[in-house]
Design a protein around this nucleic acid. Structure first.
Lengths: 144, 144
DNA sequence: CTGTTTGCAAAAAATTTGCATTACC
DNA sequence: GGTAATGCAAATTTTTTGCAAACAG
C-alpha cells in the first residue's frame, strides 16, 4: 500500500473534505499508476467497479487533489491533460504519436537529451522547459 | 526587416503555397513580436489593417507555419495556445497569474531556476521540462 | 439532520472543419 | 481559368458549471 494514501486521506479529513468512495477510487488510481492517465482513462477505470461514476466527478476530484498539492497536471498540445500522482516537477518523455508519457528522473540539461534517448529508446526531436511563477507586476498585485 | 521573412516567403512559394496578404500579415506579426501572442491576439492585430480577417485563417496560417517548422506553439494549462516566432525549443518563463511569457535563453538546469528568478524578477514556484519524440513502438509503426 | 458531493445535462472555451465565395498564380 | 485559400458558421473536443438528488459526517 502506498504510504501517501493514508496521509492524503488524513489531510482531506483535516480540511473537512468528505471522504467519498469516488474520491478514494480516483486517488488510488493516481497513486498506483505510472501511466499519466487522462480524465477519461481514470473514468473508465473507476467505472469498472463503480458503474455510477461520472466524468465530472473525476475532474472535480483531480482538481481538488491538484489544489491540495498532491498530484500534478500535464497539458498536452491537443488541449487535453494528463494527471500524475507525483506532484513535484520532473522531466517527462512524451511520444509525439501515441502520447505515451514516461518519467525521466535525472538532471543536467545539456547531456540530458542524449541520455534520455539512450535510456528510453525514444528518438527525441524536441523538448520543452518552462518555469512558472509570478512576474514582478503580479507579485505586487498579489499583495493588495 | 527580419531576414527570415523573405526566406520563409520563398519557402512557401517553393512549396506552392499561395502568398496571400493574410498569411503575410500573420507571419510579420510572429516574426516581429516577443510577446508570444494567442491566436486571438494575432487576429485582433491583423484586423486593424485587414478588417475581413477571420480567426479561422489565423489558426490555419499558424498551423501551416508550424508544419513548415518556422514557428512553435506553446500549450498552456488552460487549454489555449501561444505562438512563438522562434521555432527552436527554448526555456520560457510563464506568469501563473497574467500569463505573460518571456524567453530565457541560457542553460544548465540545476542553477537555472535561481538564475531565472534573479534575471527576470519572477518568483519561480515550479517548472516544466518535457522531451518529445517517438517511442520505440511508434518508430517501428512509422516505417510501415 | 445539515450541508457537501455526486451525476446528469447543459454551458463554455479553444480549435477545427465544411463549404460556398474569393482571389492568387 | 483552375485551384487553393478565405471566412463564415457549425461541429468537435475537453473541461467546467448549475442544480436536483444522494449521502457523509
Amino acid at each position: 500500500m502506498d504510504p501517501r494514501f493514508q496521509n492524503i486521506v488524513d489531510k482531506m479529513r483535516e480540511r473537512q473534505f468528505r471522504i467519498t468512495p469516488q474520491r478514494l477510487a480516483v486517488l488510488k488510481i493516481l497513486l498506483a499508476t505510472k501511466a499519466h492517465p487522462s480524465a477519461e482513462n481514470i473514468y473508465e477505470e473507476v467505472k469498472k467497479t463503480f458503474p455510477t461514476m461520472s466524468l465530472a466527478t473525476v475532474y472535480k476530484t483531480a482538481n481538488l487533489l491538484r489544489e491540495m498539492g498532491e498530484i500534478s497536471e500535464l497539458a498536452l498540445k491537443d488541449g487535453s491533460s494528463r494527471f500524475d500522482g507525483n506532484p513535484r516537477p520532473h522531466p517527462h518523455v512524451v511520444c509525439a504519436r501515441c502520447k505515451t508519457i514516461i518519467d525521466f528522473d535525472d538532471l543536467s540539461l545539456d547531456s540530458m537529451t542524449a541520455e534520455v534517448a539512450r535510456k528510453t529508446g525514444f528518438t527525441i526531436s524536441t523538448h520543452r522547459l518552462d518555469f512558472f511563477g509570478l512576474c514582478p507586476l503580479c507579485q505586487k498585485a498579489q499583495s493588495t
